[in-house]
Design a binder for these strands. Structure first.
Lengths: 340, 340
DNA sequence: AGAGTCGATGTAAAGGTTTTCATGGTTCAT
DNA sequence: ATGAACCATGAAAACCTTTACATCGACTCT
């Protein structure tokens, strides 16, 4: 169980009868070394089982080949699927992935900065939607960064994510194509980028179809299931009902479904519900949820790809990489009930 | 954006008018340094914004304060919640958490060993249920390890997880307490520890109640939703039906529910279904799923705690740390239908 | 007063790489 | 034959800590 003494580059050099510099070159810049010696070195490496000590290399190169991922909630299913993409791409390129679960706790965010200030991570993926606390004004101290899932407002951090505007428009247009004219938007929140972009897409679709938005059908919500439920109840209180609900995300849609089911409405005959995200339970709810699927795996890959390009000194083509969401047809949307 | 030259321990030493050894001591063993100088050092640290270079420290100390987590599927919700616990505990103790997503691909598993062979990780958390490929016979080369979620058969790797036997017994006893006598077990798989332990618990509960197990009600399954569906269909073909299904996990239970619903049975009036795990959608299915909840957060914490104890040289009290699952009563289990 | 302790600090080695610069030999053009 | 150009290699510095050992002064005890 104990770490037995590992072979070092010197052991290899001695066995191959060359200097350590040559061993290093043989491994990292094979062209710069004669064929014969390269082979001798390779043999020695195999015999000793040598692997280069990452710490020593990082120390010397001032680079750790590690990426720190800062996320408010690692347990969030939306996160974990993107993580797979991030991890896959990083691993393919020889990078490791470090997880920081911040729970939106400022002190934890600050704490995680130690990884970058101590050279333990070269780059940063931000799921948090804001720069880490504790950097404040001197954001210059931060390394290369890419925001995922949620853009960082008021900064020039590049963003990779789903095209929320376009996706919301497609979703709303689908409802319109099913004959719906009174379509609610559940989950307005001006202070959240995602929510407001989706709202914009919704409004654009209405406008494109020559429909005017009814302000009573646009309800605030923070994206939780509970907010979806509350929004629905509010509509009944106001007695301003739509024929279809476009919800800012699937969690909200679930709240709407729960609320309507509790009132014994038959879905989707009496009301259509459209979500956004396609989280795992979307296909298990009754009725199963028609929604916009985020290409999470590809988002992760694209984000990591961009970050590594940044680290390599490239300048990004654009500040945003937007991937299209895909319309997933299930059973929560139907043609509008002609009786209504 | 560029890494401006960071302050080193020498800068601090110069500013405080002491040697670098004293700075190091002042930070790591404060008692060994005089109050006055400790204060001067602290001031200098604050003024320079010094943070110790983790690479240099790791190189010198032969310890990285990093834990590698090897998981077959990072996207698995069962995993991600345990991850939160692992991460929380690690972070609290000054450790970082490195993610390795193996997809059960042997080459990826082998690849990740580079982190430990190059000293980039001190310990290993195994979600995979087996030792990493590529170590083979010389398992001695591996660092401290703890298995989570699934034990590693035929090895002495300590395991932290839910008490599958006990949980399954409690679950089955609950069904018995509701008057059920013909109880199926869906998801038998002898080659998987988890499945067979849960089956044992099921059998123990039956035996404890003086019931004999009907082999026709014990159906193979690999824990997927599809396997639950197939198992149910098989029972109808055999025409050997239970009044209640105890499923090896929630995913399987979902398959059973889908299958029964498709046959227009009314649940739970005609059949009761009990799951295991309490994954996120369990409360959203119709009927919402009665199940055994895994204390995932605590499992993660306990596993990390054990691993860090191992790293500190302690010998574990026992090879297994088993946490109790909690019975979550929802709507998929009812008293047995007297009509049947 | 001298020997022995003790506490605070400094010196220097060690940890394992990568990379600059130097060296020595070979080839090629003159 | 001579210098230039080139190639393969080696020596040594640099990356930044931690820590064993040495030193030095002050204090205690006899």
């Amino acid at each position: 169980m104990q770490q037995q003494k590992l072979a070092t580059i010197e052991d290899v050099a001695a066995m191959a009868g060359v200097s350590i510099a040559t061993v290093s070159r043989a491994m990292n810049e094979p062209t710069k070394v004669a064929d014969a010696t390269r082979k001798r070195v390779a043999d020695a490496v195999a015999r000793t089982g040598y692997t280069t000590n990452a710490m020593a290399r990082s120390l010397r190169m001032r680079r750790s080949n590690m990426i720190l991922i800062l996320a408010p909630d690692v347990g969030d299913p939306n996160f974990s699927n993107i993580l797979v993409g991030l991890e896959t791409e990083a691993s393919k390129r020889g990078y490791g992935v470090l997880i920081g679960n911040t729970q939106n706790d400022p002190s934890r965010e600050t704490d995680y900065l130690r990884f970058i200030s101590s050279n333990q991570a070269d780059g940063l993926i931000l799921f948090t939607g804001h720069l880490p606390y504790g950097v404040g004004q001197d954001a210059a101290k931060l390394p290369a960064m890419v925001a995922v899932n949620e853009p960082v407002p008021g900064s020039d951090v590049p963003f990779v994510g789903v095209d929320n505007f376009e996706g919301a428009r497609v979703a709303t247009e689908h409802l319109i194509s099913q004959g719906h004219r009174r379509i609610a938007f559940v989950g307005r929140a001006n202070n959240r980028e995602i929510n407001s972009r989706r709202e914009q897409g919704y409004l654009a679709a209405l406008a494109g179809a020559g429909l005017t938005a009814d302000p009573r059908l646009i309800i605030d919500g923070d994206g939780t299931t509970e907010s979806g439920r509350a929004a629905t109840e509010l509509m009944f209180v106001r007695d301003a009902l739509p024929t279809a609900f476009f919800c800012v995300n699937d969690a909200t849609a679930l709240g709407v479904i729960i609320s309507l089911s509790a009132r014994n409405y038959e879905l989707p005959r009496q009301f259509s519900i459209m979500g956004f995200d396609d989280i795992s339970f979307a296909s298990f709810v009754a009725p199963s949820l028609t929604t916009m699927k985020q290409p999470r795996h590809r988002i992760g890959e694209a984000a990591m790809d961009l970050l590594l390009a940044l680290l390599a000194g490239e300048t990004p083509k654009s500040r945003e990489v937007l991937l299209r969401a895909e319309l997933i047809l299930r059973n929560s949307v139907a043609r509008v009930n002609p009786g209504r």
